[in-house]
Design a protein around this nucleic acid. Structure first.
Lengths: 214, 214
DNA sequence: AATAGTGGATAGCGCTACTATCCAATGTCA
DNA sequence: TGACATTGGATAGTAGCGCTATCCACTATT
């Protein structure tokens, strides 16, 4: 498969593919001669992965590079694997709110611990939660323990749906790709479902039989 | 309050404030003379709102302008209000996947309808859900009806937590700001909770008493 | 009178993610 | 054999976004 065919197969232009090659997002094709290389199904799959991460997940090129680096040297244990996936999916660095290393409020640390999660320093997910709680609080939107616990219960239900499949890949690289792509593609679904539920609840309160709004 | 004081109060530089004024994100101060205007608490609040939407919500300047425009002409009914908020919080336009108007797969339309949500064309949230389902499916990650229903139930729980407060603002503008800012600040919390739950479930399966993986 | 701050306008910058152009080497087809 | 297209590789340029810097005339303060 030539680069032009790779371009046709993926819908991505040749200059962009060359860019991805330069940036290390796409592994080189097998060189047949000085001016010829052949690409295969793995390249098609890789390009689709990159486009999904960029288009749907809004990951930067730099983040995507982290993903492919992880895929090429996947962590050995399943636990590290999920940590790697979550690390790559961490929130973007916020320009103004705190420095990257610290920035988690003590109260947020306590809330994270109260959920039974590992300490913020020990897991990407816990750290991300701490940062999100801190950001909300700093913006004048503190989240009560009760609300957080309710949400956490709901999200445990959500997580239960696909955690089996996420870690059941035949190889570490498969499982890692599964965990990353799965979260990237389904996070928007989760958020959209939240909005739909908000609208439904709102409609019930406003339009239900005798239901009056507050 | 002078512009320099506004800058001090918000941590945003004067050139940036001037930029926000130019772009219509920040309303003009009250002109006292040709070279003097005074700003008040409403400006401080507005700047903080803008920074929250940009830093935490990753909204573009254009989107923030939509938010501000909506705040200045808030919709009359509570139902329209939530629609406006959700419209502003819709996913970013994806460069490659489909045109903006259509692009929702028929199967996704059916799944949205099966949840009891309004048709995709009628509500921003339903439309966003349709798009997310379509994108996932196109990327080779179809979401089963069962999974979707489970997730929807969980998200109803989540939505129940703050829908009262979201619509209970004293004015339409307050309620609108509440709905927008609340979602912007808490979406990252929801997603982080999902990750934490994934790690907890994974740890239970891997490390529990006699628990074996898969 | 000197100075510093202001509103207003215009231009430039840094970054990201491409996109375009050029080149020599090679493959392809007449 | 020779014209022509394509390729890999390198380098440079572009578009858009979100600021940032500079300049100016004016005005309030000292």
């Amino acid at each position: 498969m030539r680069i032009s065919q790779l371009a046709d197969a993926t819908g991505v232009g040749i200059p962009t593919l060359k860019y991805y090659l330069r940036e290390g997002l796409l592994h080189a094709g097998e060189a047949e001669s000085a001016t010829r290389a052949s690409y295969d199904a793995s390249h098609v799959e890789r390009v689709r992965l990159v486009r999904t991460l960029i288009d749907v997940g809004r990951l930067s090129i730099e983040r995507v590079r982290e993903v492919v680096a992880a895929l090429e040297h996947p962590p050995a244990t399943r636990h590290e694997l999920l940590g790697t996936a979550h690390d790559v999916l961490r929130a973007h660095d916020q320009p103004r709110l705190g420095s990257p290393a610290d920035g988690i409020a003590p109260a947020a640390v306590g809330q994270v611990a109260a959920l039974g999660a590992p300490p913020c320093a020990d897991s990407p997910a816990a750290r991300q939660l701490g940062l999100a709680l801190t950001a909300a609080s700093a913006a004048g939107w503190p989240i009560s323990d009760h609300t957080l616990e309710t949400w956490a219960g709901a999200m445990r239900t959500v997580a239960g749906q696909d955690i089996d499949a996420a870690l059941a890949g035949t190889s570490s690289a498969d499982a890692l790709r599964y965990a990353i792509v799965g979260n990237v593609l389904t996070d928007p679904v989760i958020i959209a479902l939240r909005r739909v539920a908000q609208e439904q609840l709102s409609a019930e309160m406003l339009g239900g039989t005798g239901g009056q709004f507050r």
